[in-house]
Structures are given as structure tokens and as C-alpha cells.
Amino acid sequence: MRIERLPARAGRRSGASAYKDLVWAVATADDRSEGVERQATQAFTKIDALLQELGSASDRIITVAVYLADIGRKAELDLAWDRWVPQDSSRWPMRSCVQAGLASGVLIEVVVTAVRDLEEN
């Protein structure tokens, strides 16, 4: 079975990869003039699209790692998070959130691991 890779906007890296029934995806916001909540919403939307392209979905996410430029703004992330995750608590992914040095203007980066149904691919 081959590794599937979707190109990222930046060169020499993938925005998402899949192998067997696992999918990994990473996203940041395109509009870096926005605050944490809007950047998170944009990143989550990109994650959704990447997962869909590789045969998964946000309700199949196992883990989410969130990197914030300023951990003091975590409450803003949580607003977008609450809109994005499924309402059913049995489908909530495990999430970690840490402060990290990110590129200029990037306030949040999101990395996920999800499962996919191989019958659909």
C-alpha cells in the first residue's frame, strides 16, 4: 500500500498524508491579519478539506495538537474549537495545546491524526 500525500502551499512538504487507515493533516490560516479565533476557524476549515480529500472527516479525528503563538489567547481558540468539534462527547478528539514559536503573523497551527474507511478509498 502506498503513502498518499497532498502538497502544502510551502514547498517540499505535504499538507496531509495517509497510509492505510490513518490520515495526518496540518493547517494554518491563510489570512494572517485575523485574530486567534478567526485563524483557528480558517485552519479547521482547511483540515476538514484535507481530511475529506483523503477519505476521512473531522468526526473521525483521534488527536489534535494545537500550537499557539500566545497561550494566553487559548480562550479565543476555544470559541472556534467549540463550533468545530462534534456535539456528541463520544466523538471528541483528544487535544493538546501548547505555546510555540510560529512564523510571523501565524497565531495558530493545527495538526491532526484521523482514521478513514478504506472501503471508501
Score class of each variant (00 low, 15 high):
Ala27Lys: 08
Ala114Met: 02
Ala43Asp: 10
Thr113Tyr: 00
Asp31His: 11
Val111Phe: 09
Leu118Lys: 07
Val64Thr: 15
Asp82His: 07
Gln87Pro: 00
Leu77Gly: 15
Pro86Gln: 14
Pro93Ala: 15
Val98Tyr: 12
Ser17Gln: 06
Pro7Lys: 10
Leu68Glu: 06
Val106Gly: 07
Asp88Ile: 07
Ser90Met: 04
Ala69Ile: 00
Glu109Pro: 01
Glu34Ser: 14
Lys46Asn: 08
Arg95Ile: 08
Val112Met: 09
Ile62Asp: 14
Ser33Glu: 11
Val115Arg: 10
Val66Asp: 11
Leu107Val: 08
Arg12Asn: 15
Ala49Asp: 06
Ala80Cys: 01
Trp92Ser: 03
Gln87Leu: 05
Ala40Trp: 01
Asp70Arg: 15
Val111Asp: 05
Asp30Thr: 13
Gln42Leu: 02
Pro7Gly: 11
Cys97Ala: 15
Gln39Ser: 13
Val66Gly: 13
Ser96Lys: 13
Arg2Cys: 00
Val112Gln: 08
Phe44Gln: 15
Leu50Gln: 06
Glu37Asp: 07
Gln99Cys: 02
Leu79Met: 08
Ala114Leu: 01
Arg83Ile: 00
Arg2Ile: 00
Leu54His: 05
Ile108Glu: 09
Ala57Ile: 01
Gly55Met: 01
Ala75Val: 01
Val26His: 04
Arg38Ser: 12
Trp24Glu: 05
Ala57Leu: 01
